[in-house]
Computed example of a mutant assay.
Amino acid sequence: MLDTSRGQPPAPTQEPRGCLFALSQPPLMIFLAVIGVLLLMAAVHDLFVL
């Protein structure tokens, strides 16, 4: 027979992760660093080459 008693649901084992956890991931940090370097190179080019 199936147990149909209503017990308490199991407590979540991990807390929900927010924005700071997402920003700490290496692939995202590498992507943001590449974008930052490209912007920096464009700014230096505009200031000193043009």
Rank of each mutant, 00 (worst) to 15 (best):
M1Q: 13
M1P: 12
M1N: 13
S5C: 06
S5K: 13
G7Y: 08
G7R: 14
G7Q: 12
P9N: 09
P10T: 05
P10V: 04
A11H: 03
T13L: 06
T13V: 02
Q14C: 08
Q14T: 08
E15I: 07
G18I: 12
G18S: 10
C19G: 08
L20F: 12
L20E: 08
F21K: 03
F21A: 15
A22Y: 12
A22R: 12
L23G: 10
S24V: 01
Q25A: 10
P26I: 01
P26V: 01
L28C: 03
L28H: 02
M29T: 03
I30F: 05
I30G: 00
I30M: 04
F31D: 02
L32N: 06
L32E: 00
L32I: 02
L32F: 07
V34M: 02
G36C: 04
G36M: 02
V37I: 15
V37G: 10
L38W: 05
L38M: 13
L39H: 01
L40M: 14
M41I: 14
M41Y: 08
A42M: 14
A42W: 08
A42Q: 13
A42H: 12
V44E: 04
H45P: 00
D46G: 12
F48E: 04
F48W: 10
L50F: 12
L50P: 05
